[in-house]
Design a protein around this nucleic acid. Structure first.
Length: 436
RNA sequence: GGGCUCGUAGUGAAGUUGGCCUAUCACGCCUCCCUGUCACGGAGGAGAUCGCCGGUUCGAAUCCGGUCGGGCCCGCCA
């Protein structure tokens, strides 16, 4: 019977078998120590029999083994117990030396990221690399729990779309049996449509952006937490997001502590309701503080995003902050504008530790007004098959609603203090990288 | 897309005002020694046409041009 490595201490005094990968071997002459890795972690095996040690000659880290032995309590062993009198069964011998060493932390220096990703297939076997994605899995789980607790239904929308789209970011174009198609740059249309079905819905799926961005926070494919809720106003939406961020982070810290510790991650400082600052106020504060005038600009500069997060942490007790009151310029056609001021979009960007992790907005839900905005702001034709299906959801009744998209890798990156968002992606895709 | 910057064994680094480089170190790998290691320790060894092409020079890892491949920042976004 196979037992898991982490349960070793529960089997003291018995004969057990563990199975996994050779992670490290230390030959001291009369005694050899090996670390075996399985899904639960590492276990130490002590081998004194020369014939058993010889079985490992020429075999590299990665060799798949079954080890049978007796469990001894041993304070000097990691975990308090280890395997003795071991007999080894080589299940899959590995004779090729791994291209990178996986038993100690891998270099995450910007200059070495290329190597890190080139050898990702084996590099991910490194426990500290795994920890990133254990944390990421916990982020997803924590978010899902908050969604479910608030009556959201999880759905999956198509990522192959017809040529016409919402506009904005560059899209990947592809040939679809002779027709023009694109890869979804967001679940925007579908998640709004789902408001007419479930009222509240979300999905966690890939999104594609063909922007030739070469920064530490962009990829061409990333995981998007897309959500949309009906019968809400802007404040209700932001309150929900405050709860989402707080509860997700609490869940992660309660359930992924050992992985967070490997990156020395510090729990973010957050307020129950994340503070809100109007865009123009950020510009004014930044201008006053730095002497660089950004007053009147329609967007935030990256340096402003970093600055205002520091400001919010020190003065408002939160490492996350909503930027509200966005100008009409730069808004999407589906955005809703303030009823008493059509020049201001009901939109908010959620900044966390210096980067934008989410954009939220109220959507224009009135059919006639939406059609007008589509034509006027995006130059779109309501009859176009890329738009007509979307518009029909409004024609047949759509309540006031709003939603947001949140970048999973950016959240993970910022929770762990990673320098580049790609480090939080299993197999990152950017302008230059399509493999592994 | 614009600006700046980098490219040395499998990996990470040193050397880069031209010569002392026949290229240094650490990890990993191979051989041997070692009975409590956990970044084990010790002795020895293999492994690099210094990204590639061309130029300047008596002489190029080092200077120049081109090229390919990275990185950072900006624009844009999540």
């Amino acid at each position: 019977m196979r037992i898991l490595n982490k349960t070793i201490a529960e089997h003291v005094g018995t004969q057990v078998t563990v199975q996994g990968w050779l992670h490290k071997k230390r030959l001291l002459g009369g005694v050899t120590f090996i670390n075996l890795r399985d899904r639960s972690g590492l276990v130490q095996v002590v081998i004194k029999n020369k014939d058993e040690v010889e079985k490992l000659r020429g075999l590299q880290v990665g060799t798949v083994l079954a080890v049978t032995g007796s469990v001894k309590e041993e304070p000097r062993a990691p975990g308090g117990a280890e395997l003795h009198d071991a007999s080894l069964e080589i299940m899959v011998p590995v004779t090729d030396e791994p291209p990178i060493e996986i038993d100690k932390p891998l270099s995450h220096k910007p200059d070495n990221l290329d190597t890190l990703f080139d050898y990702r297939v084996v590099g991910l076997r490194n426990l500290k690399e795994q920890a990133i994605f254990k944390v990421q899995a916990a982020v997803k789980e924590g978010a899902r729990r908050h969604f479910f607790a608030n009556d959201f239904t999880e759905f999956n929308s198509p990522k192959l779309l017809p040529g016409a789209t919402e506009g904005g970011a560059e899209v990947f174009k592809l040939d679809y049996f002779g027709k023009d198609a694109t890869l979804a740059q967001s679940a925007q249309f579908y998640k709004q449509i789902m408001v007419g079905v479930f009222e509240r819905g979300f999905e966690i799926n890939p999104t594609y952006r063909a922007e030739p961005s070469a920064t530490t926070r962009h990829m061409t494919e990333f995981m998007h937490i897309d959500a949309e809720m009906g019968f809400t106003d802007m404040q209700g939406l932001l309150d929900f997001m405050s709860g989402l961020l707080n509860n997700t982070i609490s869940y992660v810290w309660e359930n992924a502590g050992e992985y967070l510790a490997q990156w020395n991650a510090e729990k973010p400082l957050l307020t129950e309701k994340i503070p809100q600052i109007p865009l123009e106020e950020v510009h004014q504060k930044y201008t006053e503080a730095t002497g660089t005038s950004t007053v009147g600009e329609k967007d935030l500069r990256p340096d402003e995003e970093r600055w205002i997060c520091e400001y919010a942490k020190e003065n408002l007790g939160s490492e996350a902050v909503f930027i509200t009151e966005w100008p009409r310029e730069g808004a999407k056609f589906y955005h809703k504008f303030k009823d008493d001021d059509q020049t201001v979009a009901e939109r908010a960007d959620l900044l966390f530790r210096g980067v934008e992790i989410s954009t939220a907005s109220m959507r224009e839900h009135r059919y006639d007004k939406l059609v007008t905005q589509l034509q006027g702001m995006a130059g779109g034709n309501p009859e176009d098959p890329g738009f007509s299906y979307y518009l029909s959801a409004f024609k047949y009744g759509m309540p006031p609603h709003g939603g947001f998209g949140m970048g999973l890798e950016r959240v993970t990156q910022k929770l762990l203090g990673l320098h580049n968002v790609k480090e939080a992606s299993l197999f990152p895709r950017d302008i230059n990288r399509l493999t592994p």
